[in-house]
Design a protein around this nucleic acid. Structure first.
Lengths: 217, 217
DNA sequence: CATGTTATCTAACAAACGTTAGTTATTTAA
DNA sequence: TTAAATAACTAACGTTTGTTAGATAACATG
């Protein structure tokens, strides 16, 4: 469980200006490793996944992974980062794409749809964040908690607007509401089956339940 | 991952009639092992938990575990069984305790409260079922899937009654509804903090959200 | 073609894992 | 107070684990 070691020989990514000057071919293997690791972590947990499994799924041998990453921990860190980042970015963009005159409820509907679509279609990375986070060693968890609360606070803002505008009931407390709603959405990753219903159908069902509940009018 | 081995020397539990004739003192250690294992599985996952950790938490040495269990797999099997069984029993009893003239909604409220109370207070065993089931090897999962669907079908019956009676909206499909509701409830185990709110408060909030949603009347 | 860089492989390491065998301590019953 | 039973301990086993070092392969550039 070594933490902050720097990669022994991995090439430096050119941060910004250099663009794609020095990004030849190795990054492809890097991405394959990350994607394979994400799928395996999601399905077997972190300790349940071996570097040899990751390597096989990325079509290489275990030792070769260390050309791209300095440790198993570092792979997990990047998978977790990518999961949060993709989800957050998708939700932000969906909300930003709403017309200026959109209601708070409409923004929340857009956010829910984006959250679910990211989670259920390009799911490897986001699903890891959701499924195995609670079982990780505290040291690893701590490294990612700030970005997670950032995401939570973003949702709190969406909900606060809907409550203050009177669209949502005023007796609802924001923090439990956010946890309940995101929890219900996150859990879909455990049972969603694309053969039974489409993602759009599922999004529709979930938003109706969240907005209006189960009782008949 | 050996499966169906029988314990090498563990004493036979007297099935039924014998009552407590031959249950002296070793069962206490057995229960300590199971309880310790459940907590560790819940917090670190199955592969992330070592027999030496379980033994230390049960105040013995790793080798001694094999007097009570034939393998790590067997411990997991019993923990998973206990989790489902406790939850199912608590929900069944709560529903059965409803008066004969209780509405379908009232039965569901009782079931939700029982499910959450079991999950959040005596949580070790039930929480394992919820948190790590999706990451277990398929062979282990298969062994417990029938009891899980039994529990699911029980909930389906509760929901079907509420829909047929007109208490719940008729356009809701039962299977996704059950998965959504149980998912939202199950996820509370990931974030519930008894210092922030009591279990009863949480149950109250969750039932209101499920029944009526977030929108103001 | 040659050459240095980039990427992968092979083979092994020490540590930790689940598990076992043999031995000792503890309890129960005569 | 014994003797059998029950329960736990010690110490090691064969594997598998993450990781490393050194030998190759693939590749681009002069």
């Amino acid at each position: 469980m070594n933490a902050k070691a720097t990669a022994p020989s991995a090439p430096e990514r050119t941060g910004a200006a250099g663009a794609d000057r020095k990004a030849p071919k190795a990054d492809l293997s890097r991405d394959q490793i990350l994607s394979a690791a994400a799928k395996l972590f999601r399905d077997q947990g972190y300790s349940g996944t071996t570097l040899r499994q990751i390597a096989a799924a990325a079509q290489m041998k275990a030792g070769s992974i260390y050309y791209h990453f300095s440790s198993k921990d570092q792979i997990l860190d990047e998978v977790l980062d990518a999961g949060i980042a993709r989800n957050f970015a998708a939700v932000r963009e969906a909300v930003a794409a709403c017309p200026a005159e959109a209601t708070a409820e409409e923004r929340i509907l857009a956010a829910i749809a984006a959250h679910m679509r990211t989670l259920l279609s390009s799911s490897e990375f986001t699903a890891v964040d959701i499924r195995i986070f609670g079982q990780l060693p505290p040291e690893i968890r701590l490294r990612h908690q700030s970005k997670r609360s950032e995401y939570a606070r973003y949702w709190d803002g969406l909900f606060r607007a809907a409550i203050e505008s009177g669209e949502f009931r005023k007796d609802i407390k924001i923090a439990p509401l956010r946890q309940f709603v995101l929890g219900a959405l996150n859990w879909t990753v455990e049972w969603f089956d694309p053969d039974t219903q489409s993602i759009d159908e599922l999004i529709d069902r979930c938003t109706k339940l969240i907005m209006s509940g189960v009782k008949s009018a």
